[in-house]
């Protein structure tokens, strides 16, 4: 168990180092950093001095090490476009994205598990079949089209919900939240559904498959034979055993929710880090791109690690296997 954990942590560090190398190479080789920092009026001496100041005359490995040192402290330099420290901009934008990801994650999880159980129990029902067919179309539908359809129906035609922005936000000093105002909550509904829908179909199909598998098992048959109520069989016996893969997938999907937030944030002009990133790509704002890459990879790798650890907490069989093996 301990050896496994140490190996996983070690692997994660390697992944982060590789991503760091990619981010560093972007700084170093895409455009000339000196060129980007000095204005039109510069002399050769200026260039030389800045080169020395930035440590660009050192060899590659030393430069990479410096970059990592800075990155760990959250220092990614100034945004080429806004001229402010990248770290400040990211911290300012992060709450919007995290709130959006949290709500859509909850929608996906709750909706996905509920629909998954429903379609598994009423396998032959008309409603269940309709839901399954609908989910197939939902998987083929690009995220941005879902967003556009929702805007068309609920903002343009019905006029119920806002089509862009975050509404009024409350500033808590270190965090801005849209949860406390009516307009903030209203603005959250459409983006959260857009972002959560795809993950919801994934979780639903997974829960359904797992549930059908478990319901065929002998212990379920014996539970039926013992006369335990249907409800209790479905929720206490069957559901519990479908949760391990569901938690894995949900955990891994959390990462892609943050990545797919880029698309949703662009459709709804939601002022989060995703919109920041896409603007950075459009204007080739390398520091912002690199910082976003590092931030998101720390999240991804962290989530992967936690999911792996959760395995042990949830599934006792794994613990027994490990002990028996050694």
């Amino acid at each position: 168990m301990l050896a496994y954990m140490i190996r996983r942590v070690f692997q994660s560090v390697i992944v982060l180092l590789v991503v760091g190398l990619v981010a560093f190479s972007m700084f170093r080789f895409v455009g000339d950093p000196v060129d980007n920092m000095l204005g039109q009026e510069r002399t050769q001496a200026d260039i030389e001095r800045l080169r020395e100041q930035l440590g660009l005359d050192e060899n590659f490995v030393v430069q990479y090490w410096r970059f990592l040192e800075q990155a760990v402290q959250g220092n990614f330099g100034l945004s080429y476009r806004q001229g402010r420290p990248v770290a400040d901009i990211l911290v300012e934008r992060l709450p919007a994205t995290l709130e959006l990801a949290l709500v859509s994650g909850l929608i996906a999880l709750i909706g996905g598990i509920a629909l998954g159980i429903f379609t598994a129990i009423r396998k032959r029902g008309i409603a269940a079949n309709l839901i399954m067919t609908g989910s197939l179309i939902g998987v083929s539908l690009p995220t941005f089209l879902i967003g556009i359809v929702l805007i068309y129906v609920f903002s343009v035609e019905l006029g119920w919900l806002p089509s862009f922005g975050r509404g009024e936000v409350t500033d808590l000093g270190w965090w801005t939240t849209g949860f406390l105002t009516v307009s903030g909550l209203k603005a959250l509904i459409l983006p959260a559904i857009t972002l959560g829908l795809y993950q919801m179909t994934l979780i639903m199909r997974l829960v359904r498959t797992e549930m059908l598998e478990v319901l065929r098992m002998d212990y379920i048959r014996f539970a039926r034979a013992r006369g335990i109520r249907q409800r209790s069989i479905h929720f206490r016996h069957a559901l519990k055993n479908t949760l391990v893969p569901v938690i894995t997938i949900t955990g891994l999907q959390l990462g892609s929710i943050i990545a797919f937030a880029i698309i949703t944030e662009t459709v709804f002009q939601w002022p989060g880090v995703g919109l920041l990133f896409i603007n950075a790509v459009q204007f080739v704002d390398i520091p912002v791109m690199a910082a976003y890459l590092m931030m998101i990879s720390v999240m991804f790798v962290g989530i992967n690690l936690i999911v792996d650890m959760l395995y042990f907490a949830i599934d006792p069989r794994l613990r027994v296997d490990r002990k028996g093996g050694h």
Partner: peptide
Amino acid sequence: TFPAILVAMLIF
């Protein structure tokens, strides 16, 4: 580890 669309954006 990264969604393909993110990798594509980065390469772009």
